[in-house]
Design a protein around this nucleic acid. Structure first.
Length: 132
DNA sequence: GCAATGACATTTT
DNA sequence: TAAAATGCCATTG
């Protein structure tokens, strides 16, 4: 049991705040949790979780790569792919597209599609509406 | 309390 | 882009 148990709770809250189909960085989570500069502790907290209700797999390092090693890396990557996250040829994630700021209520809003961009990771490939 | 470690971030080369 | 070095600080032994 870590001494900063309260801090851990805040971290988990920030992690859970990450919308599906997006990822965030440790530094970002730490900042949202009110722990600017404790990016490392974020990862430490997630590690302590193991398999919990916290979507830890949506947390990657500033390089958009998986800092985890071993089985966790497989699990994380597996889940990210399942959520629509795409990996670069170097097993990296484009934070410009999938990285969410979590800096405000607009974090849940999809980023502006760039020209010739690969488009937003829409969860609904067939957005057909019901004929009311 | 000290020394070593770590799921990081940033800067420089 | 990749690799190395440095800063940061809680956790662990």
């Amino acid at each position: 049991m870590p001494a900063s148990d309260d801090a851990y709770a805040r971290i988990f809250r920030a992690v859970e705040a990450i919308p599906r189909g997006r990822v965030s960085t440790y530094g970002r989570i730490a900042a949202r949790a009110g722990l600017p500069g404790r990016a490392r502790q974020v990862g430490f907290a997630l590690r302590s979780l193991g398999d919990g209700s916290v979507p830890w797999h949506r947390v990657v390092n500033a390089g958009g790569r998986l800092s985890v090693v071993g089985e966790a890396a497989v699990i994380q990557r597996r889940r990210l792919l399942a959520e629509g996250i795409r990996f670069d040829a170097h097993d990296r994630i484009d934070l410009e597209r999938f990285g969410c700021d979590l800096a405000g209520p607009t974090a849940a809003s999809p980023p502006p599609a760039r020209s010739s961009g690969p488009a937003v990771p829409s969860r609904r490939p067939t957005p057909r509406r019901r004929a009311g």
